[in-house]
């Protein structure tokens, strides 16, 4: 299992080069990163996976754009929208991560979406930057949403991912800090460990139910 930060934004989207991100992430205890709009590479011991993030697009456009990345190693993610939108994108072939669920409508990710996510091996991302950067009501609302997602996760067992949404090395957090921040959501260590390896779980092709024996 590779410990992965599921979303960072290297230069030009942020102020840190992808190599520096990899160097710092390695020092903070990570094995891999998902770098949005950046080609995949390996720097030192840290694997950088290419990440694609679709946001504010209609379902039709997402389907068309997703075709381009099918079969590649890119981690494809979509920003959550309303309930219908989320169900549509979770059902898409090649979809990996549903992001920003905390910012979507209250009922945008319900038990039906949770069941679909579990069946299609689509992860739901927990954006820790909301907890570190925001204060007051905004943080409280996000924490309520995440707790709600965790209740569904316990029941349906869909994959989770954890991300910092770092645009700078200053936004990165150590693995130990991840577990401290997740403890605020009542996530125990086993769930945190599983979520840190969530990207590996959704990008690894599923084991076929039937195996051909020659």
């Amino acid at each position: 299992m590779k410990i992965t930060d599921a979303a960072v934004f290297p230069y030009p989207n942020g102020d840190t080069s992808v190599r520096r991100f990899a160097l710092e992430a390695g020092a903070l205890g990570f094995d891999s990163l998902v770098a949005i709009d950046t080609p995949a590479a390996t720097y030192g011991d840290v694997e950088v996976k290419s990440g694609i993030l679709f946001h504010d697009l209609p379902v039709k456009d997402i389907i068309n754009r997703m075709k381009r990345f099918r079969g590649t190693d890119a981690v494809i993610s979509v920003k959550a929208g309303d309930g219908g939108f989320n169900r549509a994108v979770i059902g898409m072939k090649g979809m990996h991560v549903l992001r920003c669920v905390h910012a979507a409508d209250k009922n945008a990710f319900d038990h039906v979406s949770a069941k679909m996510a579990a069946d299609n091996a689509v992860a739901v991302d927990i954006d820790l930057s909301v907890i570190t950067r925001s204060r007051g009501v905004a943080r409280q609302r996000a924490m309520v949403r995440y707790r709600d997602i965790l209740v569904l996760e316990q029941h349906y067992e869909f994959p989770l991912t954890l991300s910092t949404y770092a645009r700078s090395v200053l936004d990165l957090r150590a693995v130990r800090e991840f577990s401290g921040l997740c403890s605020l959501l009542d996530m125990d260590l086993a769930v945190v460990e599983k979520a840190l390896g969530g990207i590996g779980a959704v990008t690894t092709p599923p084991v076929p139910a039937v195996r051909e024996v020659s």
């Binding site: 570190t132 950067r133 150590a174």
Partner: peptide, 22 residues
């Protein structure tokens, strides 16, 4: 542990962006 978690939520000092690494 609680102090360390709180420290990881510090992102700025006055107007300067910082990170506190334990």
């Amino acid at each position: 542990r609680e102090l360390a978690t709180a420290l990881s939520t510090i992102t700025s000092l006055r107007d300067t962006r910082i990170a506190v690494r334990i």
